[in-house]
């Protein structure tokens, strides 16, 4: 190496040019990658700093307190935390069985001519902006839900805690439904890809052993795709937790933690959308920044958990085989 550089001077020059060019290339691309990191850190810092007064004033009580009273300057974010978690949980409850069934249909059962169009429709469903779901939810679904679903439910089962309250239309139920519709395509599309990736031998072996198609799917295909399907579900959960517009438009914006599906509720994302630009008190602004930070931390934990779970399941599956 040393010899060549000492002897061939044109070579040396070109090597130097390489070095300069390569160094520049490295620095420029690295700078852009780091710019993103810097922005994220800056954002975190700014949010944390503006949330600080609320943290100092309420401590952990900020998360558990359920009074949100700008007049008395008392802020507890529990109703929003609850609303976010509960609505996301309900949405998963609705969307996971339907989504996985849809994925099984697309990868295992559907005739070829049908799976193309259905796949395309499902992907389109994922691309529709949330404000459009909100528009449809508010103007079409909510009135229908109020008159056709909630009123009879409330009338028949009004003394169950789950259906107590009054049929307002805008409610936890409406939010959960819209959320479920929005996360369905994620689950279906990802789970479908996962199931399609399951090797054919897996199915053929099961069928050859005399399994019915369902047994093949249940015993041979699904276990194989378990990790991926779990990943799809968690991905959907992350989306549901942070969803803002459609939920804001149909949930009723009432800061109260209630188990009832008919009651209006509030989520962290919606309170930000409604109040962030308009809060005037110092502590009020700080409390909202605290909500933003909490929402960030929760989605961070969920995503971290997802990655860890997928990693663990993958590990164990690999180990047992």
């Amino acid at each position: 190496m040393k010899q060549t550089t000492a002897v061939g001077s044109p070579r040396l020059r070109s090597r130097r040019r390489h070095d300069v060019g390569d160094a520049l290339f490295l620095r420029v691309t690295q700078a852009f990658a780091l710019a993103m990191v810097a922005v994220v850190l800056l954002a975190l810092g700014v949010t944390a700093r503006s949330a600080w007064p609320a943290v100092r004033a309420f401590g952990l009580g900020f998360l558990t307190g359920s009074t949100w009273d700008p007049v008395a300057d008392k802020f507890g974010a529990w109703p929003f935390v609850w609303g976010t978690l509960y609505s996301s949980f309900l949405a998963l409850l609705l969307a996971v069985p339907v989504g996985v069934a849809g994925a099984i249909f697309l990868s295992e059962l559907s005739p070829r001519w049908l799976s193309g169009p259905v796949s395309f429709l499902v992907e389109l469903l994922a691309a529709i902006p949330s404000v459009v779901y909100g528009l449809w939810g508010l103007l079409v679904m909510v009135p229908w839900l109020r008159d056709r679903v909630q009123a009879p439910l409330n009338g028949a089962l009004g003394n169950w805690p789950l259906f107590s309250g009054a049929p307002y239309g805008v409610s936890m139920m409406a939010a959960a439904l819209v959320l479920a519709i929005m996360i369905l395509p994620i689950i279906t599309a990802v789970a479908r890809d996962v199931l399609r990736a399951v090797p054919r031998e897996q199915r053929e072996a099961a069928l050859a052993l005399g399994s019915t198609r369902w047994e093949t799917i249940w015993r041979a295909v699904l276990p194989f795709g378990r990790v991926g399907v779990l990943g799809a579900v968690i991905l959907a959960l992350g989306r549901a937790l942070g969803e803002t517009m459609a939920v804001t438009m149909v949930i009723g914006n009432r800061p109260e933690a209630s188990i009832s599906l008919l009651n209006p509720a509030y989520t962290m994302a919606s309170v930000l959308a409604n109040e962030y630009a308009e809060a005037t008190g110092r502590l009020h602004v700080a409390a909202l920044s605290g909500v933003a930070l909490t929402l960030f931390v929760i989605t961070f934990i969920v995503n971290g958990l997802a990655r860890w779970l997928v990693w663990r399941v993958a590990h164990r599956a690999g180990g047992s085989r």
């Binding site: 700008p70 804001t248 914006n253 009432r254 209006p264």
Partner: peptide
Amino acid sequence: GKSVSWPVGLGGK
């Protein structure tokens, strides 16, 4: 106040 803690009701923007 400009925003208060409402005892009942639905919030609209």
